Amino acid sequence: MVDTESDRVERKQSFKGDAPAKAREAVCAFANDLAGHGVPGVVFVGVHDNGTPMPDFEVSDELLRQLADIKTDGNIVPPPTLLVEKRQLQGNEVAVITVWSCDTPPVRYKGRIHVRWGPRRGLATAQDERILNERRRHQDRPFDVQPMRDAELTDLDRLRFEQEYLPALVARDVLEANERSYEQKLAATKMVLSDKEPTPTVLGLLVIGKLPSDWLPGAYAQFLRLAGNDLTASVLDEEPIHGTVADQIRRLEEKLSAHNQRRVRFSDVDTEDRREAYPLDALRQLVRNALMHRSYEATNTPVRVYWFDDRIEIHNPGGPFGSVTPENFGQPGITDYRNPNLAEALRALGYVQRFGAGIAIARKALGQRLQFEVQAGVVAAIIQGKPS
């Protein structure tokens, strides 16, 4: 507390005069974390510059409210992540603002970027701003390779990784010559953040996780076969399908195959003619497309496959992404990837042969029977049954 030479501590004797503005500048600087500490900065109110508390300083509810307003009054953007508390220091009350570094710097207070160099605070130089912009670009990785901070290495299935995923991704002779540790192999394939910080990523949990939906609540699929043409009809078959994305694909395809009635024609033909109600390869493409392109972020909604008497509906949570819009959805050559690393993993596992070809393959097989309903938060593929 008495160390005044710190770039992670700011002290104010009160919250009057120019102190509110100076405190906001300090919060902005801590959120930018130019030095890259990766640990919170702290603003003390009711403390001398030498670290000793102000005698008889009162931390009122009104003061705590004013400090909390630093986050919400719109002057600091993006809004900082902070915590306001009343604490005791040497028998005296002090107010404490704890500020975490921002994942998407630079942070600005009233349009200006504030940073700290050691104990000093000031406006960012052009070089400082370049560093913060590069840090933001690094942090702006796709969601599928973001770390799941509370997950642990034991939440990943090592046997599946070493016997199923790695052999599909890496040539056998390269694997045999590879002397990397387990953690290094996980990091190289983006299953964990790094070998020094082996926190599982979203990709790791989706591809080799033991129970992915424990960490990503919507990361499962739901199959429903109904004896009718709407959701009020009797249920013939229902199953929530959990597991890795590959597990979900396999189980959904088993369900689709089991319910895909085959008609056999003997009359008027030289050899028997076997026909499926729906072309199974087209259904596979649509299911795989849904699981690959869906949003796994901030949603509890699964991929839903509804099989009615007259149609099949495949609902994909997330809607169009990037360069894909409701207007150009499905057009040849128009594609973008919400989960680019998951797409690459599915390609390695053999579930994707050519990127961007899934819808084209399905349309070729189904023609006018395939339609899409595209909204901001969901895409529904609707496949009409053949007329009797």
Score class of each variant (00 low, 15 high):
E239Q: 09
I241S: 06
I241M: 05
H242L: 03
G243A: 12
T244L: 04
T244M: 01
V245W: 00
A246P: 05
D247M: 03
D247I: 05
Q248I: 00
I249H: 00
I249G: 04
R250P: 00
L252F: 01
L252M: 10
E253Q: 10
E253S: 06
E254Y: 02
E254H: 08
K255A: 03
A258P: 00
H259I: 08
N260A: 06
N260V: 10
N260C: 09
Q261I: 11
R262G: 07
R262W: 02
R263L: 10
R263Y: 11
R265F: 07
F266L: 15
F266Q: 04
D268F: 06
V269R: 14
V269A: 13
D270P: 03
D270V: 14
D270F: 09
T271K: 12
T271L: 15
D273L: 15
R274K: 14
R275E: 12
R275W: 07
R275A: 09
Y278L: 12
L280S: 12
L280Y: 01
D281Q: 12
D281P: 02
A282I: 03
A282S: 11
L283G: 14
L283W: 02
L283E: 09
R284W: 07
R284M: 10
Q285D: 15
L286H: 07
L286D: 03
N289W: 14
N289V: 01
A290T: 06
M292E: 14
H293R: 14
Y296K: 01
Y296S: 06
A298F: 07
N300S: 15
T301G: 00
P302M: 07
P302R: 07
V303W: 04
V303D: 05
V303L: 14
R304H: 06
V305D: 09
W307E: 08
W307G: 00
F308V: 06
R311G: 12
E313K: 01
N316F: 00
N316Q: 15
P317Q: 09
G319T: 15
G319K: 11
P320H: 10
F321C: 09
F321A: 12
S323A: 11
S323T: 15
